[in-house]
Amino acid sequence: MKKWLLTAAAAALTLSFGAHAYAQNIQPRLIRFGYGLNEDSNQGRAARFFAEEVAKRSGGKLKVRTFGAATLGPDPQMQNALIGGAQEMMVGSTATLVGTVKEFAIWDVPFMFANEKEADAVLDGPVGQKLLDKLQEKGLVGLVYWENGFRNLTNSRHKIEKAEDLQGVKLRVMQNPVFIDTFKAAGANAVPLAFAELFTALETKAVDGQENPYTTIVSSKFYEVQKYLTVTNHVYSPWIMTASKVWWDKLSPDEQKILIDAAVASRDFERADTRAEAAKALDQLKADGMDVTVMPPEEVAKLREKAAPVTKTVIDSVGQPLWDEVQAEIRKTRGTN
Rank of each mutant, 00 (worst) to 15 (best):
G289N: 12
D291A: 04
P296S: 10
E298G: 03
A301C: 15
K302G: 05
K286P: 14
V310D: 04
V294C: 04
D273N: 06
D316P: 11
D288K: 15
A278M: 11
K286N: 13
A301Q: 12
T274K: 14
D291N: 08
T313W: 09
P297L: 06
V294P: 02
A307D: 02
L285E: 11
K312R: 08
V300C: 05
A308W: 12
Q284I: 10
K312D: 10
V300L: 13
G289F: 03
V310Y: 04
D316G: 00
L303S: 03
P297T: 14
D273T: 00
M295W: 10
L285S: 10
K306T: 01
V300F: 01
A276N: 15
P296D: 11
T311D: 07
V314F: 09
I315T: 03
V310Q: 09
A276P: 08
R275A: 08
E277G: 14
T293R: 03
D291S: 05
A301R: 14
D288W: 06
D288H: 13
E299N: 08
V294W: 06
P297R: 03
V292T: 09
A272L: 09
V292D: 08
V300Y: 12
A307R: 05
V294A: 05
A281I: 14
A281V: 14
A279R: 13
T274V: 11
D316W: 05
P309N: 07
T293M: 08
D288T: 05
K302R: 09
P296C: 12
D288R: 10
L303N: 04
A287R: 13
M290I: 10
A308L: 14
T311Q: 04
V300M: 09
T293N: 10
V310W: 04
E277M: 13
M290Y: 08
P296K: 07
A301L: 14
V300P: 00
A278N: 09
K302F: 07
E305Y: 07
V292H: 06
D283I: 14
A276R: 15
E299S: 03
Q284L: 15
E277D: 11
L303I: 04
P297K: 06
K280C: 04
R275L: 11
A307M: 06
T293S: 13
L285D: 01
V314Y: 01
A308V: 10
V300D: 07
E299A: 02
V310G: 11
A281F: 11
D291W: 04
P296I: 05
Q284A: 09
L282R: 02
T313F: 01
V314P: 01
L303D: 00
A301T: 12
L282A: 12
I315F: 07
E299I: 00
A287G: 01
A276V: 11
